[in-house]
Nucleic acid binder design. Sequence first.
DNA 1: CAGTGAGCGAGCTTCCGCTTGACTT
Length: 774
Amino acid sequence: MATTSTKHKPLIIVESPTKARTLSRILGQGYRVLSSQGHVRDLPDKELGVDIENGYQPKFRIIGRKSKVVKSLRDAAKEAQVILLATDPDREGEAIAWHLAELVNRPVQRVEFREFTRRAVQDAVKHPHDINRRRVDAQLARRVLDRLVGYRISPVLWRKVRRGLSAGRVQSVAVRFICEREEEIRAFSPQEYWTLEGQFAGDSVAFAAQLVEVDGRRIVHPSKEQNASTRIVASEEEATVLRDALLPLEYAVDSVQEKKISKSPAPPFITATLQQAAFKKLGFQGKRTMRTAQQLYEGIDVGEGLEGLITYMRTDSVRVAAEFVQAAREHIAESFGRPYVPEKPRAWKSRAGAQEAHEAIRPTNLAYTPDRVKSYLSSDQLKIYTLIYNRFLASQMANAQHLQRQTEVVSSGGDVAARFRHTATTVSFDGFLRVYREENNQDEKAKPGDSLAGVREGMGLDLKELTPSQHFTKPLPRYTEASLIKTLEEFGIGRPSTYAPILDTIVERGYVEREGRNMAPTEWAFLVIALMKDYFPEVVDVDFTARMEQRLDLVEEGKDRWQELVDSFYQPLAKKIELALADRSKKYKPEARELDEKCPECGKPLVERSGRYGKFIACSGYPDCRYVKRDNGAKGAIGKPLDERCPKCGAQLVARRNRWGWEFVACPSYPKCDYAREPQLRCPKCGGALHRRQAKNRRVFYVCENSPGPGEDKESASGKTCDFVLFARPTVDKCELCGWFIAERKQRDKVLRFCSNPECANHSGIALPDSEKE
DNA sequence: CAGTGAGCGAGCTTCCGCTTGACTT
């Protein structure tokens, strides 16, 4: 494209590059469209950045890795006559627009659209307006408040609990949920109860029915409220007595009732519900779901160039563009027939307080059915796309119709009166179930052995068998990623872009450990939550965010000033921080746990303590006795023996891991012998010496002495013929396929092991022996 | 590259929310 063609065209700035591309397509050649890629300015990382003494004046800096983006936006702004800021129509988007306006230092206009349809976009561009300064102020209040809460309370935790911990408006409430659930589980005592199932048979009928009533008292689950008309069968003895009493009685069908049940589909996905469904149905963690959805959003070549297959995936709204609903109705009629189209289009309602900047997550083109595009998609992409496609389609389909048939059987004669019930539900019209059903939809349980076709009221029956079965009440389960996100979303805590990262944060800080699908709190979580409840109860109150939001609305309506909002939250907080720091007790430090083992040096009992680097075992006589157990299986363990002798003392060397988890080779007789080195010293390719280097970004990498430096190419650097460079750490292990050493790299908090040979099949990663999911 | 506790007190850690692309001496 000619460079002059962009000059003087109106410039439109949006948040995401994909939106820029779509917008460009809608508006055509007359506009130049660029993206900010999210926020471009923020408070500095290394300091508070809020002048508390001076009206909470924030100190904004261009975010380091956005400097290139900012430069290109500034350059483009210089060339443009008209600048339109089309960032998202929500609080954060308004703030981004304001920061951009400040940075380009030129007159700007604001445009907003909530759908990426031609009509909505063209209409928006025709009606530009000013930036909403009140809305920007509301965002400012939100940002400053979060910074003050996070950066002022966290240091209290470093001092009183452990270094490196953190607190925040969102993460602390998430940790609180997990801790309180754990306390409930620990306090729970399972309660025994019994159910009785009878096998009835009569004239060409046979079926099973549950005992539901004895002498006018309903048999209920222990969790149900108890009164004079209810009863729990609590023991085997009780169950046996009942069985013996009921077996000899005579029985007859009391009633047969049929009920129609209409079930409506779930709304189309928003971020939180997509993550929940993908977790439940596919076992995907939030991160994996979002990464995949992003790919579908950015576009896939389905044979006709790049096509974005879904709408934006970070949304809190279930709204769908009216024209697309119409398209869906036509598609449904065509694919499944008229009865599958509801009379009126369904209009879904988002949670109160949703910002509704985007549509729900839906396919962009119904002609791209999962089946039609599957050969262009990866396996993850197809799974997520199918989920989104079907959930959306279902949300505009007709209700499913169920027929529930209840057959009740009563006893006659004897000293007790019993009532049994058989319930069968059948689907009479599948409706939306044709394309989407929830995970635990187990209400269609017509048992295979049952035959009730000939059942009539008053018909006599024999009770052939009466089988008691034992049950126990169960505590609520631990939170999973899905149920935690659901809970946070319901309380309005966190935003679509942060649900998945929150999980990482609380795991990284050591508050929570993943145990299979569940989230288990650590000791640190309990200590920190206890402190938070004592000193900062309002911050860990589930309604803190809701109260903040109400106040933000007032700022947005011009009824409150942002500084006053921040001040009214911060002043009480500042007092509590002082109180907390003044308390010198060790109440929130982990306790040493006494062990049954005696110190081999002084005979006093050993204790397990929590130190900076995890748990360790030492003598309770400290500081008189400084014994520390070295082979406790923790990080300071003895290590893996190697086929190599110590050059200093001749002992058999071992591989150990340092405090950051990296391997090194050392003498086992440490501290008597201090021989230690890196796991690999020679280049696996040419045998030359292997050097460790550090990049500007502080990442460690390894390079062969025979490889040319960055400035020199292979021709000019005579003799430097090797090109071995490794952006990872070597280990002592060898690859089974090629014999080169295995290397390790950390991807976020996860360790990736792979062969150092780029030609080897194991280079992309080694399958773990106990391959865990994701 | 091998810690840890207590206290002395260098120099360090930390929030939530928007968005992707880096590329190493």
